[in-house]
Write a protein that binds this DNA or RNA. Structure first.
Lengths: 333, 333
DNA sequence: TTTTGCTGTGCAATCGATTGCACAACAATC
DNA sequence: GATTGTTGTGCAATCGATTGCACAGCAAAA
């Protein structure tokens, strides 16, 4: 009965060399003769040996692990299964895989600041990507002061010291609203919350555009980001909103809930009410009617997030950046 | 200038005790006096100290990390952003968080068997949840032979030695098809691939039901699991399928693609063609028309997967299990 | 006063891999 | 034949926390 082969030392004993040599051989060090290297690799393969990553991580002082964390502090928190997140996460996984890193995925309901400090200061990951600022501005500011490898998806406020990647939501909200104004709509409602910086900016953009056009703000329909929740509650809100001819929805999922509610209320989209969303999730093109929306290029977003993160992991303090957005005109508005 | 406080030893020096005492104090060991414990905790908190998880993991021989891995070996691989996966992953995250474990998420295109062995034998995780068997039956069998903490979502074949959790897809396919038969449909197409065990079983169930009813199999419309891909290709396939009055789709996302294609072809659902899906993703209730489908209770699925995984981590060889399914009747068929 | 028992800390080994340095063996050069 | 290089391995420290065992100090019992 042969013991299981678990460690470098086991292989070393089998081959008749020291662990140091096995380590070097498996790392393909040129300091080990080709012959010895081959022999060691053969034995390792035969025994299905894989190096213990924990020990390696400890010694090397890095883990090749990146945390993607979604703080759910705000009231209208969407779930990780929101298509916006899943798409972004998918692209992030691709980008990390390319750079030979793995993803630690975590959604947290913050009670204190430890959700971030425990990740950043416990050495369990080499870097952190925070998806959504939620209501955690303070925690983000605090941690970013002495922890470089941190990037955040969200609205880059003027006073945020951390590295923030996102679209210019103010402009996005304005562009969407201007589009509705340009197509002759005048009683334009805003559908969504304003409890995270991104949405707050979109809402301000909406108000700016109306103001510039000399239009009064329409009704405010507060809908959380989760689609199905939206669908149930939104009908009454919409009915109460009364005589509107357009809706700017703070996200595509909200827009879809709005469209559905309007249908149920017997109002046709876009004839009676035009609807514009935000995100251009993949579904947006396939619902009925296809959704006019503000596209955020999430493939690019993921690439930029990762590029900045890796720069910061090298000690380079990559600054915030805004990624482009564009209006995608489809049938809904 | 005071050095950063990174290790147990730093805290120990600060307090004037040994690392051993700090370790015990932070672990709340009763062997350390209350007074010392408090003092150490205070100092630790003041300096924002968090214990180094890598060192801890090495010493303790566990990581509190569970890998969720999606193998993308098969032709019609859906992406991780598929609502089925994201929902399941979300529930798994909840369940793991409850048990104080983190999730390592990874999607891999297998080239050899190392995608699984490197996870299971490198000590980077305490357990592995494989979401979808893909075409990796051999790898799963091989690894499960000497690696206990592994559970798989999929179709529990009679000859699989690993722990597999899933619905009885044969019955699911049969139930869906019988429902269409019961509502008077006779020319029933199957939409989807059969390149993973789950779908193959659903297809067999479909054939069984038709056979039992003395019905000839309808046309086979091969659509991959990705929704948007489906939408483009499926129209021609459907047109070619000719005179059908129902479709059993292998997943809800496929069903949605089919509905959309039928609409474009000017055929109404369910009047001209009834459509039944599979999964009951959250969207299914909200599309138009709402989708009749086979529900898989993913919340329960996640709970069972985790419960079995943790049993196996304890050394208890929890066997495969099927979770219940049910037909959800909505407007589409 | 000596013995026994209990409490609270410290010592040092350990988890498994990596790596700077030392060094043996042998070839090349003078 | 002595010196210098080169090549291939080994030795031992290190990463940072955990834990079995030893032991000092003090109180209670004899």
């Amino acid at each position: 009965m042969n013991k299981p082969v678990q460690t470098l030392a086991d292989i070393a004993a089998l081959v008749g060399v020291t662990p140091a040599t096995v380590s070097r051989a498996l790392a393909d060090s040129p300091r080990i003769s080709q012959q010895t290297r081959d022999r060691i690799r053969d034995v390792a393969r035969q025994h299905g040996f894989h190096i213990n990553q924990t020990a390696r991580n400890l010694r090397m002082g890095r883990t090749r692990l990146i945390a993607c964390v979604v703080p759910l502090g705000h009231q209208s928190a969407q779930r990780v299964s929101d298509p916006f997140y899943t798409t972004l996460i998918g692209h992030l996984m691709d980008g990390l895989a390319q750079r030979e890193h793995k993803m630690l995925l975590s959604a947290v309901a913050p009670t204190d600041d430890s959700w971030l400090t425990s990740l950043s200061r416990s050495g369990s990951v080499d870097g952190v990507i925070v998806l959504c600022q939620s209501d955690q501005e303070d925690a983000l500011q605090a941690v970013s002061r002495d922890y470089l490898p941190l990037v955040v998806w969200g609205e880059a406020g003027a006073n945020s010291s951390y590295c923030c990647v996102g679209t210019d939501n103010l402009v996005g909200g304005r562009v969407a609203t201007e589009h509705l104004l340009n197509t002759g709509r005048r009683r334009i409602a805003y559908a969504g919350m304003t409890d995270i910086p991104e949405l707050e900016a979109r809402h301000r953009g909406y108000l700016d555009a109306l103001d510039a056009a000399g239009c009064a703000p329409g009704p405010w329909i507060p809908i959380p980001l989760a689609y199905d929740a939206a669908s149930d509650a939104v009908r009454d809100e919409l009915a109460a909103a009364g005589d509107i001819d357009a809706v700017f929805a703070a996200s595509d999922m909200i827009a879809m809930g709005v469209v559905r509610a309007l249908n149920i209320l017997g109002r046709s989209v876009p004839d009676d009410v035009a609807v514009v969303g935000y995100d251009d999730v993949s579904l947006a093109a396939y619902v009925h009617p296809p959704l006019t929306t503000i596209r955020q290029d999430l493939r690019l977003a993921a690439e930029v997030l990762i590029e900045r993160l890796f720069a910061r992991m090298e000690g380079v303090a990559a600054p915030s950046v805004q990624i482009p957005l564009s209006l995608i005109e489809r049938a809904s508005g």
